[in-house]
């Protein structure tokens, strides 16, 4: 880390280092100390501090979520035991589809199949925060902006599950002809975040989402007019309007959770080459499993 002038106002100043009157002998790192000061839960509230709404999430879960999970995509889940029952963990998945159905289905799978169902925080582009309507709805459903500070707080301080898509927009933008070929995994920021929080990474492979919402082409003039992040040509969009984004084809979903990768040592994230290597390994692992799953699949629809 860069040498910083130790002025009394610098963030890592003396404020954090000494915690006057602490009875423990070892000096407690400032960050550890702060975990004890997380705000308590107010049982009267229906929203979390992140804006997640139990009520609205429940409504979605019971209607659209159930319908798509059980009857439309008929999700099949393997390796759910790889998702830890306690503590922070990062789920890393491949990503596809115009309005990606994979995120919701992974969240639903943890909720339905896991012996200790836990809420999954889905990281999304901050684009949604600036778009009216989405801005209201997206956080209520348990999505948070993909900011490193948000991921760290969720993983380290609040010890929750975070779902990230390192491919980001490049994954959802890819055309049908490029299906199941993983894009670049960002800059490895997700590995860095997991290492900093010392939280395990659980790679996730989703098969089916590419066929459920295929993109045939991009309509750039329409995108420019509407200000959306992209305007894909799908079987139902744009001719059925924005709701056409939800017009998924009934492909069969297979979701596979792979063995978790643990990072127990401190300060691993400072080693940039290690970060890149791990990111590359995870990408290769997901890619390889995807090809295996595709090989085993006999039909797209059943």
């Amino acid at each position: 880390m860069a040498e910083r002038a130790r002025t009394s106002l610098s963030p890592e100043g003396p404020a954090g280092t000494d915690n006057g009157g602490d009875e423990r002998h070892l000096p407690v790192p400032h960050r550890d100390d702060l975990r004890r000061h997380l705000p308590g839960v107010e049982p009267e509230r229906q929203l979390t501090d992140w804006g997640r709404s139990e009520r609205i999430e429940g409504i979605f879960d019971n209607t659209l979520g159930n319908f798509f999970y059980r009857y439309w995509f008929r999700c099949e889940v393997e390796g759910i035991e790889n998702v830890p029952a306690t503590g922070g963990a990062m789920l890393v998945s491949n990503h596809s589809g115009a309005l990606p159905p994979d995120a919701a289905m992974i969240g639903k799978a943890v909720k339905e199949e896991h012996p200790h169902p836990r809420p999954v925080n889905i990281t999304v582009e901050h684009f949604f925060k600036g778009y009216p309507g989405f801005s209201m709805l997206i956080p209520k459903l348990g999505c948070v902006a993909a900011h490193p500070a948000n991921v760290h707080r969720l993983l380290y301080d609040e010890e929750q599950l975070v779902l990230v898509f390192p491919e980001g927009r490049k994954g959802t933008e890819k055309l049908y002809k490029n299906r199941y070929r993983l894009r670049r995994f960002g800059r490895g920021g997700f590995v860095e975040a997991a290492m900093r929080a010392r939280a395990p990474i659980v790679p996730v492979c989703v098969v089916g989402a590419e066929e459920a919402a295929p993109i045939f082409a991009h309509l750039s003039p329409l995108q420019k007019v509407t200000g959306l992040i992209y305007a894909p040509l799908t079987p139902t969009f744009p001719h059925f309007g924005l709701l056409g984004m939800l017009g998924y084809l009934p492909a069969k979903f297979h979701i596979r959770f792979l063995d978790p990768i643990h990072f127990d040592d401190e300060d691993l994230h400072l080693d940039k080459s290690l970060v890149q290597t791990v990111a590359h390994d995870i990408r290769a692992k997901i890619q390889q499993n995807l090809f295996e799953m595709l090989e085993e699949r006999e039909s797209v629809w059943f």
């Binding site: 009394s8 106002l9 100043g13 404020a15 308590g40 509230r45 929203l47 501090d49």
Partner: peptide, 18 residues
């Protein structure tokens, strides 16, 4: 003695609708 910067904000972040 509190050297440095401190945020002063109560526990809990509400939605405006709340």
């Amino acid at each position: 003695d509190l050297p440095g910067v401190y945020n002063v904000a109560a526990d809990g972040v509400l939605a405006l609708s709340e």
